[in-house]
């Protein structure tokens, strides 16, 4: 038996950089370094662990939708140990929102062939956390999301979802869409050998016509949502800072009392 895993990843502006918006109110990608979204590293890691724990022949394809530079994210995932990569790139994709992105990913996943899709819990730029659910809806397969533990046994995927009010054990038949949290296990660092090997791994490039998607189904103009304004949050007014000379706790209590919290 074989198991085909597609890991969806996103190339995002570095969260520690000075992120801002471009004139068309999309995320500016020019002035801040990009990288593989940290939360997607956990998805790559779980795919690798499923592969290592499996007796089956497992093939891991890493998939991204994004501009030319997004290849860096694919390269990182390949150097961690994924087998091959697919880059969906098309100028008409600029400004596509979550609903549109899920369409592109669904078509690409179907074209690639899959038994299991693994995603991160959210991107570190948009932070919506809805693409895995959208992908499951579009593909018509079970959604097994926000897992802190995941395992595949035969044709079944199982996992633990830590929710707000309860911890749930989930189970579904493959094919399925899984998303994993940052609690699922530390992602490995690429080894030197892995980095060298990644240079020789295949990266396919697809555009919208390869996926039979019309240009009027994606892009900023055709998005299902519109951003009308983006304003930088005013810097917080400098507060009072005191050094504790033995009365710091009492001074703080006085401040809280003044603000009516006590």
């Amino acid at each position: 038996m074989s198991l085909r895993i597609v890991v969806t990843v996103k190339y995002v502006p570095d969260a520690t950089g000075d992120r801002h918006f471009a004139d068309d109110l999309t995320v500016d990608r020019d002035d801040v370094d990009g990288l593989l979204s940290e939360l997607d590293e956990y998805a790559v890691e779980q795919a690798l662990q499923i592969s290592e724990n499996s007796d089956d022949d497992v093939e891991i394809t890493v998939l991204t939708v994004g501009p030319e530079d997004a290849k860096d994210a694919l390269r990182k995932a390949l150097s961690m140990g994924a087998d091959k990569a697919i880059h969906v790139e098309d100028d008409d994709l600029h400004g596509t929102d979550a609903i549109g992105t899920s369409l592109v990913l669904a078509k690409a996943v179907e074209k690639a062939g899959y038994d299991l899709v693994i995603s991160g819990m959210a991107s570190t730029d948009g932070t919506m956390g809805v693409v895995p659910a959208l992908l499951a809806e579009r593909l018509g397969v079970p959604q097994v999301t926000l897992l802190s533990e995941v395992s595949v046994d035969g044709g079944t995927v199982k996992g633990r979802r830590d929710g707000d009010t309860a911890t749930e054990q989930l189970e579904a038949s493959l094919p399925a869409v899984v998303s994993v949290t940052d609690q699922s296990g530390e992602a490995r660092y690429p080894s030197f050998k892995g980095i060298m090997a990644a240079k020789k791994k295949p990266v396919e490039s697809w555009d919208l016509s390869d996926l039979d998607i019309d240009e009027d189904e994606v892009g900023l103009e055709n998005a299902w949502t519109a951003v009308d304004s983006a304003t930088e949050r005013p810097a917080r007014t400098a507060g009072t800072i005191v050094k504790d000379e033995g009365e710091g706790g009492k001074q703080l209590a006085a401040f809280l009392a003044e603000r009516k919290f006590v």
Binding site: I241, K243, D244, G248, G249, K250, L252
Partner: peptide, 22 residues
């Protein structure tokens, strides 16, 4: 940089004192 009020000090001194005062 974010605070309305900040105490530079050892939390093991400041926090229990704050709790008692509250």
């Amino acid at each position: 940089d974010l605070v309305d009020y900040g105490v530079v000090g050892d939390l093991f001194d400041v926090v229990p004192q704050l709790t008692e005062e509250v």
